[in-house]
């Protein structure tokens, strides 16, 4: 009896990984002899931006909050960096600007919530409006429909090596902070019980701001990767990231309420799964409606299975 339940809870814990494995196998089978190193590179390219933003965002989700303005934050950060490059012709300054702007946006987001006692989800919704308006205004200020960084310049940076480096270093750093520093451990604790956390000397405000700042680094990096990959920035650049991140993190096995069962790996697992799924949909050449339908059903199924643990008699809020 005891063993059975343990087994079940183990299975529940790895549902996301099982889903990932199934998707991967399906993809490989479908690709068949067209399998190539290029394919893996494609997967990396498509995964990395969502993965980086999601990984940073795990800190936010861990504290039990969520942020739907991440996509427009990436866009604003990318545009700012591109503008700086076009003024200074320095890739280094461009990179710094992107990180700084990412940090700044998330700082404003979280500081508003922390010091003015606002519910975070409302500030991020308001932030979404503000940032998307800002994107349009900034692009318009360039006098056209797009802002571009010279292709030849960023092309030198568009290498698998650099991307893998950024991904590995950032995820590694996040895992380290998450599991091996007081900061990460406190974030997790905060997500589980904010009152208890406060009564254990944990500053809720400080920690939630720090969580957003780490996400801000992810935003900055994603902005950089976006520009390196596609140096033409339009009003719709990065617009889908906001929702992609939520879907990826949840699909990857992160509990929506954060807390002790949170894990960094959810971001990568979820991002890769989503990319594989969309690749499969394209191979099957489904119409847009059908493929989104399949996606929604799979999403609900996986999330339901991985949420089987920790059910209560009452409805979850």
């Amino acid at each position: 009896m005891k063993k059975k339940i343990n087994l079940k809870s183990k299975v529940v814990e790895i549902v996301s990984l099982v889903a990932l494995a199934i998707l991967a196998v399906t993809y490989l089978v479908m690709m068949g002899d067209r399998l190539s190193p290029y394919m893996l590179q494609t997967l990396l390219n498509q995964t990395i931006i969502t993965a980086v933003v999601s990984t940073g965002a795990v800190f936010i989700y861990t504290t039990g909050a969520f942020d739907i303005s991440l996509g427009s934050a990436v866009a604003v950060s990318a545009i700012s960096g591109a503008m700086v490059y076009n003024k200074t012709e320095s890739l280094f300054l461009m990179f710094l600007t992107m990180i700084a702007v990412g940090l700044l946006i998330e700082l404003i987001d979280s500081a508003l919530a922390a010091f003015l006692n606002l519910p975070v989800f409302v500030t991020t919704i308001a932030m979404l409006s503000v940032l998307s308006a800002l994107v349009k205004i900034m692009i318009a200020s360039g006098g056209g429909a797009k802002i571009e960084v010279p292709r030849a310049v960023v092309k030198t940076l568009d290498s698998v090596g650099l991307k893998v480096l950024i991904l590995v270093v950032f995820i590694g750093l996040c895992i380290f902070i998450y599991n091996y520093t007081a900061l990460g451990r406190r974030e997790k604790f905060l997500g589980g019980n904010p009152i208890c956390a406060k009564l254990t000397g944990i500053s809720v405000k400080k920690l939630s701001i720090l969580a957003f700042l780490i996400a801000g680094v992810g935003v900055g990096l994603a902005a950089f990767l976006t520009v390196v990959r596609a140096p033409t920035i339009t009003t719709s650049t990065a617009s889908s990231i906001g929702m992609d991140v939520i879907i990826a993190i949840v699909f990857g096995g992160m509990p929506a309420s954060g807390g002790a069962r949170s894990k960094i790996s959810a971001a990568l697992v979820g991002s890769v799964s989503m990319v594989l799924l969309s690749q499969i949909m394209v191979i099957l050449n489904f119409s847009a409606g059908i493929s989104q339908c399949v996606k929604s059903i799979l999403f609900l199924a996986v999330v339901t299975l991985s949420g089987l643990k920790g059910r209560k008699a009452m409805l979850t809020r």
Partner: peptide, 13 residues
């Protein structure tokens, strides 16, 4: 249960 412990977490945590 509500203020002194994080019921979601382990003894270790």
């Amino acid at each position: 249960d509500t203020e002194a412990l994080n019921m979601d977490a382990s003894i270790l945590d």
